[in-house]
């Protein structure tokens, strides 16, 4: 965890899950699991976020919302799809209004399995995402288009 120089903030959106994964995401933020010890804070504003946590599959009405939130998150960003519904549609995959996993509309970096995903595996997914976030940041730095301030730390 040496690369954890910054506090990564997460944004959570419930695409069309049953709620099970959503409350587990929130449970991961609260005292027993407490991801705030890693500096991770749940924010409601996409512009503040580094990691996008999506639960549930996408449908006709919410795919625009998911895309919209994804596009508003500044680079570098990582998407974590939580629960089996976000990966493939899960138990609801044959429903008429389910298009499939979140990867149908936005690129996904980490898939967290489970129905509902346990807080431990959500934390594991987020920690994996931190590594990917760092790789992406370094790649951007090499390309030279990183948004930097004068002191050289990434924004």
């Amino acid at each position: 965890m040496t690369y954890l120089k910054k506090s990564p903030w997460v944004i959570h959106y419930d695409a069309s899950s049953c709620n099970g994964c959503d409350i587990e995401v929130l449970a991961a933020l609260t005292p027993v699991y407490d991801v705030e010890r890693f500096g991770i804070i749940n924010t409601g504003n996409p512009k503040h976020a580094d990691i996008f946590l999506v639960t549930g599959s996408v449908n006709e009405q919410n795919k625009e919302v998911v895309k919209n939130i994804y596009e508003q998150i500044p680079e570098p960003k990582v998407v974590v799809a939580i629960g089996i519904c976000a990966a493939s549609g899960g138990i609801f995959r044959e429903c008429y209004n389910v298009l499939g996993g979140v990867d149908k509309v936005i690129p996904v970096d980490v898939f967290v399995t489970g129905c509902a995903a346990r807080p431990e595996s959500i934390i594991d997914g987020v920690v994996t995402a931190l590594g990917i976030l760092e790789t992406k940041r370094l790649a951007m730095k090499e390309k030279g288009n990183e948004t930097m301030d004068k002191s050289g730390s990434a924004v």
Binding site: S57, N59, N97, V98
Partner: peptide, 11 residues
């Protein structure tokens, strides 16, 4: 409403 409609009653 309708953002999380899955339509599983038909399942």
């Amino acid at each position: 409403i309708g953002y999380i409609h899955r339509g599983f009653e038909k399942l």
